[in-house]
Amino acid sequence: MLRRLSTNCFTSNPSVPWLFVGLGNPGDKFKGTRHNIGFEMIDAFADSLGISLTNLHSKALFGQGFVGSFPVFLAKPQTYMNLSGQSIGPLAAYYKLPLNRVMVFHDDMELPCGILRLQEKGGHGSHHGLKSVIDSFRRNREFARLRIGIGRPPGQMDPKAFLLQKFNTLARERIDAALKEGADVLKLIPSDGVTECARWFNREQKYKHIRSSTTFKVEIMDNHLT
């Protein structure tokens, strides 16, 4: 049985755990698709910490461990994306965690592929998984997010079809690099906090996008010339 935290825990207390959650859809059918990049990020983070997500808790695959001296909980809801809150809400309530100790990883079509963005709070932006999470917290939006850029669907492609596609070779390379970058910065969150990490990390990611765009244009020109 997992230990229940004391009701005397406060956010200033370093012993209060962080809950990191990756959003996605369970099952092999959805593995590797754009909409499941939240699952991939939590897996990359778990692997970097040596934490196994093998327990089932509050309708989620669950693991726990430490980042340095800071306790962390990691979870992958198994409710399907649009019902993610049915897992995350009860999980945070079980451990009596304040929302500023919760971070959710999710795909984001508003960011270029492979670009990451740390955010302290916000709305759902029509992301049904995030909307479910917000609803589970009684419409409270005061939890952090790691937004993972997957880019926009090409032309007139249906966004729903785009989300359920797998990445092409170039996009996959960018995503794999982003997973490593994400796992690295997430290790700093418990000690440095979201605000401080977002200050420098988001700036680096912005410049990475500029460099990536330049490289991509050069690749197109090289391909054209050859």
Rank of each mutant, 00 (worst) to 15 (best):
R141K: 15
I175H: 01
R203P: 01
S6M: 04
P71F: 08
Q205A: 03
E204M: 03
F62M: 15
T195A: 14
H35V: 02
S191F: 14
K76D: 06
P159D: 09
L2V: 14
E120N: 14
I150A: 00
P112L: 02
R174G: 13
I220N: 09
V16I: 15
D108Q: 03
G193F: 06
A183L: 03
G65C: 07
P17R: 01
Q86L: 08
K166E: 11
W18C: 09
M221Y: 13
A92Q: 15
G27N: 09
D43I: 08
L163F: 04
F45Y: 05
H57R: 13
M221E: 12
A92H: 14
D28P: 08
P17E: 04
K166G: 15
L74S: 12
H35A: 05
R117P: 03
T215H: 11
L74R: 08
D47V: 10
L130R: 07
G149Q: 01
H209Q: 11
P77Q: 06
I210E: 04
F10N: 06
F39K: 00
L118Q: 08
F201K: 00
G50T: 03
Q86S: 07
K76N: 09
F143Y: 10
I148T: 00
I220C: 08
L19G: 01
T226M: 13
P90M: 04
I189Y: 07
I134W: 02
R147V: 06
H57S: 10
D43C: 03
V194C: 08
L170D: 04
A60Y: 04
A75G: 07
Q165D: 15
G32N: 01
L83R: 05
D184F: 11
T214Y: 15
L2C: 03
L23C: 02
D135W: 01
D135K: 03
R174S: 14
E142S: 15
E110R: 00
R152P: 00
R141N: 13
E173N: 14
L163I: 06
R4S: 09
L116A: 08
D108E: 02
S6I: 07
R141A: 10
M157I: 02
A92N: 14
S48K: 13
P17C: 06
L130D: 05
L5Y: 05
E110G: 02
R138T: 05
D222N: 12
T214K: 13
Q119Y: 08
L83C: 00
G32C: 05
I148L: 12
T54P: 03
S15M: 12
V218N: 07
N55C: 12
N223H: 10
S126D: 01
F70G: 01
P71A: 14
S213Y: 09
R138A: 09
C197A: 10
E142T: 12
S87G: 04
G89W: 13
H128P: 02
H209R: 06
D108H: 02
F70S: 12
I134F: 04
G193N: 03
I150F: 00
S213A: 15
I148D: 00
T169D: 12
H57E: 14
P14V: 15
T195H: 15
A178E: 04
P159W: 04
S132W: 03
D222W: 07
T169H: 07
P190V: 10
I220S: 02
A44H: 01
G38S: 04
R211E: 14
V72R: 01
N100S: 09
